[in-house]
Design a protein around this nucleic acid. Structure first.
Length: 607
DNA sequence: AGGGCGAGCCAC
DNA sequence: AAACGTGGCTCGCCCT
């Protein structure tokens, strides 16, 4: 396969190429880098493909700066060469629109090493994910997406080749091809986005790329000394519990041995096979599995079971939130920044929610011992802002239920109002227990809860639970109607949509009752959870624009929460900015009830 | 040995 | 009649 490319190695050619490219309204865009970490590697090539078929490959090795030495290198890893000015201008401009596959990746390098914020983006990865509408079977690598939408193959064999040395013809061909294929690919994806009414949602997603790139570049600071201290404490506790548990399990047989100072043969208490054997020997009626929820009912009668459950909790937190995060082998703490640069997948879930990996800093335990390790560096502050009951507000807006809307508009406590209705008592006589039931009910409804599950959760009998659910839906009639309609749509049309029109498509065998009821629950939940994701993404963009050229950086996002780090002297002002941007984003989608954001300034990630 | 998978548990 | 949604990480077990 021939691609017509021109390799740019000097200032004059670069100027001419950039002039030519700036005439275009769209261009394919890609970079080749010497590693995956913008703090340790460098950008080798920048490629642009014009719709006419000509490709420009710019070899940054021929320009001074970066990590590559040279007169203009200030040692900061940024290219300062004046000759790159036309390139930077082209990158920053809103036109031409740059088509990239996973633009976040390129945006990070361009920001970090050319000190330029990419303007005008079309991301073929995000577009492909939107069109797939939550089908988790579909893969979205450029190779796969190009094969799906074009009748062409893109060979990615050179992707991980060495971009440090003199480049081979094969490498240049690959680099050119990667950029060129994006032009027709975008055309096909635009057709599909239009056909599925997903243009608005795609814009929302594309607008979110730069904020996410910046978030990953910024990283979250972790106080390693505190983390070690925490591990040590938990380790001590684990050792004590493990010892006690071994004693209890060995009861009767090994007692003698340990009395005489012999080494006790320990069980592997993390193995449910060995555990079952040991527990049975002690006369514990072990259920068909040693899953925690199965063992829970035995805890009161059998102290050994209680001890085991206690041990498991501690053991779990130690393996999941232990040494690994600090281990250089994990690479989670960047050696250049000493911060955690987690990977945020912009469309991580079919609902549109983010997913976070390596490490997942969206699942740090809420306990203060853990959260206090994530703190602001000296002279900095954290601004922690989260949407208050945003999913329930979205539910109120989408269903138009007057009871819900009134509760939010009056500023009343929704759970208390719900409790009063469901239990038939005056508002001021609602007990703490009743409010707690109502709260679990309100949240459960978002997930499509049933009476069975509710009775399990609350300890109420099945009939009591059925009765409460009946009264709940009798109270909130419009909510009931909407949920039924959402379930029906999930089965008949097999779709659901959020407030940004994000689409989820359900595929299941109609004969499979379980799959069908899962689709129904998804049909109810996706618009709610997904609209919350829409709002967060809109907030990220608004906030990103407001924070540009300030001391503030977004350092974490957790579904309905944004954590910003800023100079201590700016914290008050930034906090107001964050709250305003989040409210504005919410109000773009939710108009029937107020949007509330709770904001705090803190030294640690603790509210 | 190493991948796949389920169990378990963390977040929202 | 009805098994409450979305993720990630780590472990042990099982299989190749």
């Amino acid at each position: 396969m021939d691609t017509n490319y021109k390799l740019i190695t000097n200032a004059t050619d670069l100027r001419i190429a950039c002039d030519e490219l700036s005439q275009q309204s769209i261009v394919g865009f890609d970079t080749e880098t010497t590693s995956l970490d913008p703090y340790s590697g460098r950008v080798r090539l920048v490629q642009f493909a014009a719709p006419g078929g000509s490709v420009y490959i710019i070899d940054l090795d021929c320009f001074s700066g970066g990590n590559n030495g040279g007169a203009a290198n200030n040692g900061d890893g940024i290219y300062h060469d004046e000759a790159l000015a036309p390139l930077k201008k082209l990158l920053a401009a809103a036109r031409p629109v740059k088509i990239a596959h996973n633009a976040k990746f390129d945006a990070k390098w361009i920001k970090r090493q050319l000190d330029v914020e990419l303007g005008g983006l079309f991301d073929t990865l995000l577009a492909s994910q939107l069109v797939s509408a939550g089908n988790t079977e579909d893969r979205h690598s450029l190779e796969v997406v190009a094969a799906r939408y074009l009748e062409e193959r893109v060979d990615k064999a050179e992707q991980l080749s060495d971009w440090n040395r003199e480049l081979s013809e094969a490498q240049l061909e690959y680099a050119a091809r990667d950029a060129a294929v994006l032009v027709p690919l975008r055309e096909r994806l635009v057709e599909r986005l239009k056909a599925e009414n997903l243009i608005q949602c795609a814009t929302l997603e594309f607008d979110c790329v730069l904020p996410v790139a910046d978030l990953e570049l910024a990283g979250f600071y972790l106080d390693q000394a505190r983390w070690r201290e925490q591990i040590a404490n938990v380790e001590q506790l684990r050792a004590r519990l493990a010892g006690e548990l071994q004693e209890m399990l060995a009861e009767g047989t090994m007692q003698q041995a340990s009395l005489f100072g012999e080494t006790r043969v320990d069980f592997n208490i993390d193995s449910h096979v060995q555990l079952t054997k040991a527990l049975k020997r002690l006369g514990v009626p072990v259920p068909d599995s040693t899953r925690n929820w199965k063992l829970q009912p035995l805890a009161e009668e059998y102290p050994v079971v209680k001890k085991l459950l206690e041990y498991r909790t501690v053991q779990k937190s130690l393996t999941s939130y232990g040494e690994n995060i600090l281990d250089p082998k994990s690479g989670y703490i960047n050696s250049h920044t000493q911060r955690i640069h987690a990977n945020f997948h912009q469309i991580g879930a079919p609902t549109g929610r983010f997913a976070c990996t390596q490490p997942n800093i969206q699942q740090v335990p809420h306990a203060i011992e853990y959260r206090r390790c994530f703190r602001a560096p000296d002279n900095r502050k954290l601004i922690i802002a989260d949407y208050s009951q945003v999913e329930l507000r979205i539910l109120a807006h989408i269903t138009g239920d007057q009871g819900f809307i009134d509760a939010f508009n009056s500023g009343a406590d929704l759970h208390r109002v719900t409790a009063a209705q469901v239990f038939g008592v005056p508002l001021d006589e609602v007990t703490a227990d009743q409010r707690s039931f109502a709260k679990r009910l309100n949240f459960g409804v978002v997930y499509g809860i049933g009476a069975q599950r509710f009775s399990m959760m609350t300890g109420l009998s099945l009939t009591e639970s059925e009765d409460i659910l009946r009264r709940y839906f009798a109270t909130y009639r419009a909510l009931d109607t909407w949920l039924r309609e959402a379930a029906r749509r999930a089965v008949r049309e097999r779709t659901a949509r959020t407030l940004s029109n994000r689409l989820a498509r359900f595929t299941f065998d109609p004969a499979d009752k379980q799959a069908a009821s899962l689709a129904q629950r998804n049909g109810k939940n996706m618009p709610i959870q997904g609209s919350s994701a829409d709002i967060l993404k809109r907030a990220l963009r608004l906030l990103h624009d407001k924070l540009r050229d300030s001391s503030a950086r977004i350092v974490n996002i957790v579904h309905d929460e944004i954590v910003v780090e800023a100079d201590a002297c700016d914290a008050e002002e930034i906090a107001r900015t964050v709250e305003a941007a989040m409210c504005a984003a919410g109000e773009e989608y939710v108009t029937r009830v107020p949007i509330k954001v709770e904001t705090e300034i803190a030294d640690e990630w603790v509210k």
